[in-house]
Amino acid sequence: MNHDFRFFCKLFLSTFSLSAFTFGGGYVIIPLMRKKFVEQYNWISEEEMLDFTAISQSTPGAMAVNASLLVGYRLAGFFGAFVTLVATVLPPLLILSVVALFYQAFQDNRLVNLVLKGMGAGVAAVIADVVVTMARDVVSARNLFQIAVMLLTFVAVFVFEVNAILVVLVCAAVGILYALLLKGRKRGQEH
């Protein structure tokens, strides 16, 4: 592929517009990226996109950022990754800077406060909906280990207010031990 100035403009603009029109963050951006980079531009293959999705889901940080870093790197190395990173981060950075300025100015306005108060209840409903769906997925997989981890983590975080970073580290370690144990047992059965 010809990596001229026009290519980088196209890469920047397409990533920028994907980021600017993806509301709510999270998984929404993946199918949109697929449509643009796989179907429309033919820049990356279907299989690569699946790999990128899996990697960005299982590595730390925001999915949108991870996925666009991978696309940029795949297309044009470190400079490509830099271009897609800036293009992904810029829209929320600009918009939230403006919002933060207005927020400070309108913070004491009674009407704005009442609207935000009502929206707070709406946000709680949105999160509750997400949590119910996610928890149902865990329960319906009928993996006792995962169900136990879910319940114990909830008690640790909500009741005992255990540090979230500690919870992530401990769960990662426990998960690795569990996987090694399972593998060891399977090998034992084979012999």
Binding site: A124, I127, V131, F145, M150, T153, F154, V167, G175, A179
Partner: peptide
């Protein structure tokens, strides 16, 4: 294997952590 294993435990843990943060948002609102 290591990454897969870590994620097996992290996925349900993340559900609970989101639930906990969501509950404090709910109670505050």
């Amino acid at each position: 294997l290591v990454v897969d294993g870590a994620l097996t435990a992290l996925r349900p843990a993340v559900v609970s952590m989101i639930a906990s943060a969501g509950l404090s948002i709910l109670l505050s609102s």
